[in-house]
């Protein structure tokens, strides 16, 4: 089995290369080896439905689904925190009334999932999935607990930095995004082949939340802010791009 030193050498070999999206062919993330396309993607002008996004509404998402701390009879263990921010396109225009979904490990770094056999405790009061709709200004808001880092089997003694998985829709299908939000200053960043697969450090930083004291609630929860910028929509003019 590879060691962290082997993986870090593979990370280092391509570190700093340009590229604002993750490199799909990224040997340090071992399970990508047979799952990345070898041929270049074919450019295609979006047509028809690709210029539009599916629509979600009140009948799809209940307000209570944004509070991951109250899905069971008791309170989950962990650092209670607000996670909020705005979903905008690359011109800064809000993505209003659109779906945001999240899933995460509990405070001990354990997922409520059959495949997670990491010997950390499950929390009977925390499932770790939530969803909400953005407001008119693109704001989403969740109440949850801070996830722990967790081990995985990419290499010997591999650990993921703490993260929350996000699934986001824009105003066009081509803006579809599934990603992971991270926390500032995580000591595992340099070691993690998933985070480092984005070789441009500025682009990686776009996945970092920041602590924001103004969104904490006294004697209740800390707060992290993360604004999510989607690629431009082809359906609207690009005039705002120059100011972005």
């Amino acid at each position: 089995m590879s060691t962290q030193a082997d993986i870090s050498a593979q990370i280092g070999a391509v570190a700093g290369l340009s590229g604002r999206q993750p490199r799909l062919d990224y040997p340090a993330y071992r399970s990508s080896s047979a799952r990345h396309p070898e041929l270049d993607p074919v450019p295609a002008d979006p047509e028809g439905v690709e210029l539009w996004a599916p629509c979600f509404g009140r009948r799809d998402v209940d307000d209570a689904e944004a509070d991951l701390t109250r899905r069971h009879a008791g309170e989950p263990i962990g650092e209670r925190m607000v996670v909020t921010g705005r979903v905008v396109d690359s011109g800064g225009r809000p993505v209003a009334h659109q779906l945001v979904e999240i899933w995460q490990a509990n405070a001990a770094g354990r997922y409520w999932h059959q495949r997670d056999q990491h010997p950390a405790p499950l929390d009977p009061h925390f499932t770790g999935a939530g969803r909400c709709l953005t407001g008119a200004d693109g704001t989403y808001r969740f109440l949850t607990v801070k996830p722990g880092p967790y081990p995985w089997r990419n290499h010997l003694n591999a650990w993921r930095p703490a993260h929350i998985h996000f699934s986001v829709f824009g105003t066009a299908f081509t803006q579809r995004l599934v990603t992971q939000m991270y926390f500032p200053g995580d000591p595992l960043f340099d070691l993690d082949p998933i985070y480092q697969s984005i070789t441009d450090p500025k682009a990686r930083q776009a996945l970092l939340s920041r602590y924001d004291h103004s969104i904490t609630t006294p004697e209740h929860s800390t707060g992290y802010r993360w604004d999510i910028v989607l690629t431009g929509s082809h359906r609207t003019p690009f005039e705002a791009e120059g100011n972005a």
Binding site: R20, H165, T179, I198, T231
Partner: peptide, 11 residues
């Protein structure tokens, strides 16, 4: 800078 994607993972 648009948020880059990340794998959907096993969970």
């Amino acid at each position: 800078i648009p948020a880059p994607g990340q794998t959907v993972g096993p969970f």
